[in-house]
């Protein structure tokens, strides 16, 4: 089997320039003792996307991220970042893995200088400037000179994001970036991610919070016990189950008849009358219903949320509140 480590140089043929920021194929990690953390994972993260990597705690998200960054070597399978060999790709990748980790006896700024020095492509001449910018982006300029051990949980998390923003990045890999942040901090991080993504950087963000992914991301993948259960745009994931129009009326039989004549599929008459929306515009349906003398008390379009998708796919609830 092949090994993928930084030292190995280029263990696989780099993908031709493609629109994929992250590609994995059959990526598997079996830890000693036989425990399979990640099982034959095939991810395709398009460039420019904000990609939510969803899954309950312990579903293999972090192990996957560690494999992507070359920290853990896969038991089987291949992966590529930005279509490049790992050592060439990593300087363009900012990463936050499993929470912040810094030198407690150094200041925030000194910590960033340390990690910047570790990057062989980073210029010492511009380090000061870049560190200042990164600190400003996460709002830590005032606390730059404070020792890390005196930082609050939120400040630590923000410093870790600053470390991921030290250079011009094509890809950000953020593992649970809002962990430990208060609601205000969470909002700031979401705004930051959107801002970064707007600049053309691909963001791969893992989370166990469905709502977070729904709000931030354009794409998502859902993991469960090491396996990928779904992947795609948020829209397509939700679209896997059709949007329905739901009519609240005292005359359900009439309404059902109208909807059927309009050609809507799967018409059901329960407490509400509902049918698959298909390509119809809700306002037109409303006009027809009114024209046909159906008393419309309420009309709504119901789209399944990611949670519905997840429950549908796994038959399991999701830890929505974290």
């Amino acid at each position: 089997m092949t090994t993928v480590t930084q030292e190995a140089g280029a263990p696989f043929r780099a993908a031709p320039p493609s629109d994929a920021a992250i590609v994995t194929s059959g990526l598997t990690k079996r830890f000693r003792g036989g425990q399979v953390a990640v099982d034959a994972l095939d991810l395709a993260v398009p460039r420019g996307s904000v990609y939510g990597f969803l899954g309950p705690n312990g579903s293999g998200k972090t192990t996957t991220i560690r494999m992507l960054l070359g920290l853990v070597s896969p038991t089987e399978g291949e992966h590529a970042l930005l279509g490049l060999p790992l050592d060439q790709a990593l300087p363009r990748v900012g990463a936050l893995v499993e929470g912040p980790a810094f030198y407690p006896y150094l200041s925030g700024e000194a910590n960033l200088r340390r990690f910047d020095a570790a990057d062989p492509t980073a210029s010492a001449a511009t380090a000061r400037e870049r560190i200042g910018e990164a600190l400003e982006r996460v709002g830590l300029t005032a606390a730059a000179g404070k020792r890390f051990r005196n930082y609050s949980l939120g400040m630590r998390q923000r410093l870790a994001i600053a470390a991921a923003l030290l250079g011009p990045r094509e890809l950000l890999i953020l593992d649970e970036p809002t962990n430990g942040l208060d609601p205000q901090g969470t909002r700031e991080v979401r705004a930051l991610v959107k801002e970064i993504a707007a600049g053309g950087t691909t963001v791969f963000v893992s989370s166990h919070l469905l709502a977070e992914v729904e709000q931030m991301c354009t794409h998502a993948a859902i993991m469960r016990t090491g396996k990928l259960v779904a992947q795609g745009t948020i829209a397509s994931l939700s679209g896997g189950r059709a949007a329905r129009i739901r009519v609240e009326t005292p005359g359900p039989a009439d309404a059902a008849r109208v909807l059927t004549t309009l050609g809507l599929a799967d018409v059901r008459a329960d407490a509400y009358v509902s049918a698959e929306l298909g390509g119809h515009a809700p306002e037109e349906i409303n006009a027809v219903l009114v024209r046909e003398g159906v008393a419309v008390r309420g009309l709504a379009v119901v789209r399944p949320s990611l949670e519905d998708v997840f429950v549908g796919l796994t038959g399991e609830g999701f830890d929505v509140d974290g």
């Binding site: 089997m1 092949t2 090994t3 480590t5 190995a8 070597s73």
Partner: peptide, 8 residues
């Protein structure tokens, strides 16, 4: 065992 391990 992985081949890389032997080489290393």
């Amino acid at each position: 065992m992985r081949r890389g391990t032997f080489v290393r």
